[in-house]
């Protein structure tokens, strides 16, 4: 009892911090940008007292959309890590993101009569529903392929190796599809680094729909993910329908991945680092870790995009470069800590 109080306090503090961080990301995200808008004007635009399309049509949906993408990636990462009891599993390493990208591109190519420009159009700006569904199938396919190649979930090394192979092959296929006619190397490159530049209200709506679809079951399954941490045999002995459960978790996480890839391209490290960092603060309780990863992923990506669009303004950096620059060193630090302990 003496130990539980500080722990409960600590956990509440983590959530308070996450909410504060998210608020900061929202405020800064709206206040700063390529164009200088005085804070008073920002507030007036938000309240509808003053017309300012830069705030209401560009910045607000971009910040909110970035948060939804970050939340989707964070939760998907936490779900993958919990499902596979593997801290390296994430939408990126499991090949799901590449699979989603392949699915989206394939749809665009099928619809657009092999026009790569149309593919980019679809990826960056349109087709929210069908693109996400195709991406979903691609993500699911890639994840299952990774699992088959790795011979299950238990062996971390094989899992990462298989995920990297599946991801590379599918990225290669995606690039091939995109390069079908002109020399659009730059656009393909940009796509693989993620792009939030044109996230507008249609994109935000699409993301919201898919988050509303996939997030509640995942958040409600936190306790079941906890049970999986005791091992599959124990989970089965508790009567849990493991196959259906895994499929449900996989489908929900893949849907979240696909929704974010369809709207913003491939953005690495958010899904890996967010749950990883929060696990150090919150422990392994997925009832806490899943909502915390949603908040943390949202804040992380919103802040990363803020840096991407303000560091070199009015030019922009690819947001994936920023998340990688932020996430990479953090991940190295984690590895170094692990080695230090072992």
């Amino acid at each position: 009892m003496t130990l539980s109080l500080p722990l409960a306090l600590k956990r509440s503090l983590v959530f308070a911090w996450l909410l504060a961080l998210l608020s900061i990301a929202l405020v800064l995200g709206l206040a700063l940008g390529a164009v200088a808008v005085p804070p008073g004007d920002v507030v007036r635009a938000l309240l509808g007292l003053q017309e300012n399309p830069i705030i209401t049509e560009l910045r607000l949906p971009r910040v909110l959309g970035g948060m939804l993408v970050g939340a989707a990636l964070g939760v998907a990462g936490a779900a993958f890590q919990g499902l596979f009891r593997n801290p390296l599993a994430d939408p990126y390493l499991m090949g799901a993101a590449s699979g989603a990208a392949f699915g989206v591109t394939l749809l665009a190519v099928l619809l657009g009569g092999l026009s790569p420009a149309f593919a980019q159009h679809a990826v960056f700006q349109g087709l929210p529903l069908s693109a996400t569904l195709f991406g979903f199938l691609g993500a699911l396919f890639a994840t299952l392929l990774t699992l088959v190649l790795a011979g299950g979930v238990a062996r971390t090394g094989e899992l990462v190796l298989a995920g990297v192979v599946v991801g590379s092959v599918l990225t290669g296929l995606t690039t091939y599809l995109m390069l079908q006619d002109a020399d659009r190397v730059r656009a393909v490159f940009a796509y693989t680094l993620g792009n939030l530049a044109f996230l507008g209200w249609p994109g935000v709506r699409a993301l919201a729909v898919f988050l509303l679809l996939a997030l509640p079951p995942l958040l409600l399954l936190g306790r079941v993910l906890n049970a999986l941490q005791l091992g599959e045999e124990v989970a089965r002995s508790l009567g849990l329908p493991l196959n259906g459960l895994k499929l449900l978790l996989l489908a929900a996480a893949s849907l979240l991945t696909a929704a974010s890839v369809a709207q913003a391209g491939i953005i690495g490290f958010v899904g890996l680092v967010t749950p990883h960092a929060l696990r150090r603060l919150l422990g392994e309780d997925y009832r806490l870790l899943l909502p915390a990863s949603a908040l943390g992923g949202a804040a992380l990506l919103a802040l990363a995009d803020l840096l991407a669009r303000t560091l070199t303004r009015p030019a922009e950096l690819p947001v994936g470069v920023v998340t990688t620059l932020l996430g990479g060193p953090f991940f190295l630090y984690l590895l170094w800590r692990r080695r230090g302990r072992a």
Binding site: S4, N226, Q229, L230, G231, E233, V234, R279, G283, E284
Partner: peptide
């Protein structure tokens, strides 16, 4: 109750 882990160390 199986023999050995996994043990979720970060769980209350």
């Amino acid at each position: 109750l199986p023999q050995g882990g996994p043990y979720p160390e970060g769980l209350l």
